[in-house]
């Protein structure tokens, strides 16, 4: 008989019994629906990659890479370690190494912390026991500074926000922060031959950078188009870093789109005034076969996801990181 270690507690699993049935039989509250490996209500995550592989038919490439599996379809014959995807990460302590202002209301922070993550995932940062907000990772685990692995975060400051004024001003380099993570499915999981479209607005650039770095790290073969949108020119940041990457990789093209250049500022050749939805529709009319990554405000991600899906991208090939403002 196999054991199921579910979020730290041991449960039994009888021969032929599914993980879902075993956990429910022993009093765990696990959502379920069709029990046929279709509706995704019971999707959980396990550490044992080999066992997870057998119960992933129908999950997106990103979910498969993160070892998500259908609990209703999994009948393990060895001990498995299982969690809900929302409880994927653990709580770790980090130290703020440095902080710089990169746009009028955007700060880039580097935090030293021991955490295994996929670029593009997010963490929740806590100011005290209960007050936390989530931020996406722009760093790549292979990067290091003076031998130290740093998490890169882009924080948009909200005047009356619960976390951002503290993160952008009060917290000092050398001081520690509590982090929970990693979480999220917006990770590079495309086929190397699949053209990529990465679009983001505001600090949606953070997870987009993470995904882009990982695609380049894996020597992605097909074209990669990055569209970065901002309301006005001052909202753009990391432009030199992105243009540097584009100069170094023939298959990478980066464009910056300004929604409203009302002061008629001179724009560099990679920047133009355009509506990001319209620009995307005109320049990428057929997204069949594309891997699409969309990051930023929830309204942007929702509208763009629908547009890209109707434009031919398969639902499983659209990865998103939608930011929700909690105040």
């Amino acid at each position: 008989m196999a054991d199921i270690i579910f979020e730290g507690r041991v449960y039994t699993c009888q021969p032929g019994e599914s993980v879902l049935d075993a956990l429910i039989r022993q009093g765990c509250e696990i959502a379920s629906g069709c029990r046929a490996g279709v509706c995704q209500a019971c999707v959980l995550l396990m550490d044992e990659q080999e066992i997870a592989r057998g119960c992933q038919q129908g999950l997106s490439p990103a979910q498969q890479k993160l070892n998500h599996f259908f609990a209703c379809q999994c009948r393990p014959d060895a001990t498995v370690h299982v969690r809900r995807p929302a409880n994927a990460g653990g709580r770790v302590s980090g130290i703020l190494r440095c902080r710089e202002q990169v746009a009028p209301d955007i700060y880039r922070l580097y935090v030293s912390a021991q955490m295994d993550y996929q670029p593009g995932q997010y963490v929740t940062i806590f100011k005290d026991q209960t007050t936390g907000r989530s931020y996406s990772l722009a760093s790549h685990p292979e990067e290091s500074s003076s031998g130290e692995r740093l998490l890169e975060l882009h924080i948009k400051q909200h005047e009356s926000g619960a976390l951002s004024p503290w993160l952008c001003h009060d917290l000092q380099p050398g001081e520690s922060v509590s982090l929970l993570g990693p979480m999220g499915n917006c990770i590079y999981s495309a086929n190397p031959q699949q053209p990529l479209l990465l679009a983001g607005i505001g600090t949606g650039l953070a997870p987009l950078l993470g995904v882009l770095k990982d695609a380049l790290h894996h020597q992605h073969q097909a074209s990669i188009n990055v569209l970065v949108g901002a309301t006005e020119p001052s909202g753009l940041y990391c432009t030199e870093q992105l243009l540097g990457l584009a100069a170094a990789h023939a298959n990478l093209q980066v464009e910056f789109l300004i929604q409203n250049n009302r002061n008629n500022q001179a724009l560099d050749p990679a920047t133009r005034e355009a509506d990001i939805y319209q620009y995307c529709a005109e320049n990428f009319p057929d997204l069949k076969g594309y891997g699409v990554y969309l990051c930023g405000a929830e309204s942007f991600v929702g509208k763009m996801r629908k547009q890209c899906f109707l434009g031919g991208a398969a639902m499983a090939d659209i990865s998103t990181d939608a930011f929700i403002v909690f105040g």
Partner: peptide
């Protein structure tokens, strides 16, 4: 047309699976 297109998509898949006689517990 919901904000959670992925969840909606999964529901449509469950419906199609039933309609086409695939494995289901409908």
């Amino acid at each position: 047309d919901t904000t959670d297109m992925e969840a909606q998509h999964a529901k449509q898949k469950a419906f199609l699976t039933v309609a086409l006689g695939g494995p289901n517990n409908y």
